[in-house]
């Protein structure tokens, strides 16, 4: 799917078979939740593929997939997000359009049900690539993206987990490495015109410091899309992903002639060796 250079072809004769890949986070999924997660990614992928079949763009497809995952409380993005050290939800998201390298991101935004859609609005309606914190919320107001009450994004399960962690206050890293946390969602797609896109969205790490920004909204870390090479969306220990700029690195290896799976394999291996991080990616 990485060789998609060339002029867009008429959509009546799709020369490129559209494809979408979604992920719902890299972590050791508790038995009780694995079915909900599997169903969630399936539903998201089916919805996004429908968009592609109708001739929709890769950008529309990844947004559709990630919105579905954000709306699904089984995932740590949108509704179902983890709570930070202050007991609040702060969300990060990115989208990138492989045609033009246009990108949009929000970090640490609150009370937004679908951060991926807000990230797309940043890309399409501002001269900027990233808006953060209150500024991102002011922008949401100005373009008519509705805010939702904080409670609407918090599940009962998460509230309980958070309180449990407050009692046994532990470092974020041990939390992640103990694999009791769920994680970031994302999607990559190739449409029938040969265009690629990626989207990633997350509530971050449970008990994170107020204002913590992970890899997700950082271009080249949480995702990257380039028609000449391919598209990547990452999930895992954000700080490790950032240290090796995982998405950029994978695409660079693909550009060097490796297959997507070889590139991912060697980059995850590299990350494990250099910074001892665990992650997954789809491309």
């Amino acid at each position: 799917m990485c060789d998609c250079e060339g002029a867009p072809l008429p959509s009546m004769q799709p020369a490129v078979k559209p494809v979408v890949v979604v992920h719902g986070g890299a972590w050791a999924i508790p038995v009780g939740m694995s079915e909900a997660c599997a169903n969630g990614v399936k539903t998201a992928a089916v919805g996004a593929f429908r968009v592609l079949k109708r001739g929709g763009t890769a950008l529309d497809a990844v947004e559709t997939a990630v919105r579905a995952l954000e709306d699904d409380p089984a995932f740590d993005a949108g509704r179902g997000s983890v709570l930070n050290a202050g007991g609040e939800v702060e969300l990060d998201a990115v989208v990138m359009d492989g045609r033009t390298l246009a990108a949009g991101a929000v970090s640490c935004v609150r009370n937004i049900a679908n951060p991926v859609t807000l990230a797309r609005a940043v890309m399409e309606k501002t001269d900027h690539v990233m808006l953060t914190d209150r500024g991102a919320n002011l922008f949401a107001d100005s373009v008519g993206v509705a805010t939702v009450p904080s409670d609407a994004l918090v599940t009962e399960h998460e509230r309980e987990e958070w309180e449990r962690h407050q009692q046994y206050s532990r470092g974020v890293k041990s939390l992640f490495n103990s694999r009791w946390d769920h994680d970031t969602v994302g999607a990559v797609a190739l449409d029938c015109h040969g265009d690629v896109a990626c989207a990633t969205s997350t509530g971050g790490i449970r008990n994170k410091m107020v204002g913590r920004v992970g890899d997700s909204p950082i271009i080249g870390c949480g995702g990257y899309a380039d028609n000449r090479v391919g598209a990547v969306s990452c999930t895992g220990h954000g700080e490790s992903i950032m240290k090796v700029t995982l998405a950029s690195r994978i695409l660079f290896h693909i550009e060097q002639g490796r297959s997507p799976s070889e590139a991912v394999e060697s980059c995850l291996q590299y990350m494990a060796e250099r910074v001892k991080g665990g992650a997954g990616s789809s491309q």
Binding site: S107, C108, D133, M209, G211, R212, V213, G214, G238
Partner: peptide, 15 residues
Amino acid sequence: KTQHLCLTAEGASKF
């Protein structure tokens, strides 16, 4: 001093 890489806006001030 943190296990994070990036802190933003009000959170950075708090830190």
